[in-house]
Amino acid sequence: MTSVLYDVPGPKARRISLIGSIIGSVIIAAGVVGAIVILSSQGIFNSSRWEVFVNDYAADVWTQLGLGVLATLQAAGVAAVIAFPLGVAFCLLRISLIPWVRIPTQVVLEFLRGMPVVLMILFVLLVFATSPFTAVVSGLVLYNAAIFAEILRAGIQSLPKGQREAGLAIGLRSFQSRMSIEFPQAIRRMLPSLIAQLVVLLKDTSLGYIVAYEELLRKVKLIADLEPSLLFSAFFVGAAIYILINLSVSRLAIMIERRGTKKAAGGVASAIKTVDLDVNAPQ
């Protein structure tokens, strides 16, 4: 698509593009230099600000940050593991054939999706007087289960009708058809979205900072409170860790998406092939 928007550049256009690139780079570089000047005027580059990561206290600092990372991953892991089955359950109720079940579920899902996650976390924390960890996990579970349910519903609706019809025709109950025919395919189709949502979940654990859950950002704040001059360096390292973790999970999602589009293009015929591939694939 991109290349359709303009010609393959000739010598003149290449020159203009080069000049544009240079001007663009200069502007961006000026921004970076400006930032560096501001930072260095605050003494950010003095080695005293950074040596805490290598001197005698380094072990303590890194231990604290490590504990923060661990707490972040723990909250995200527990929340994801609970949220997914709950999402499947929500989805089942949401596409139920009985209006009495379907409509209330829809209302609940709309409610959960329209609510800020922080608010749910705070609600659990204050109303049920739980620990920050439980509050963070419950908030994340409720919100993400609702999102997972919507993603899975979209996946199931994207399946060819014949899948369910065939399931019912060979005598499966509606529930059996859902669990053994529709969900496996829907999950497969929606894997990129599901993983993208996992990144969101991982990012949202940082909301734990607000309810004093000792995750990475809270640890950064602790370090900065002990020694205010370390605020920037601690923040820089903490943010870098967060971004690295998230970027790697996002990369994973893109990889799976690429693999998925190669295999699962088209309708039923290719679905049969994918099943075949799965059976034969080395685990």
Binding site: A13, S17, G20, I28, D204, S206, N246
Partner: peptide
């Protein structure tokens, strides 16, 4: 068509989307 702009935009979007809002 300008490579520097493309690069900057890609970098910005990737980093901003993968940084928690709280940070």
């Amino acid at each position: 068509p300008v490579a520097a702009l493309r690069g900057f935009s890609t970098f910005y979007v990737e980093v901003a989307r993968n940084t928690p809002l709280t940070i």
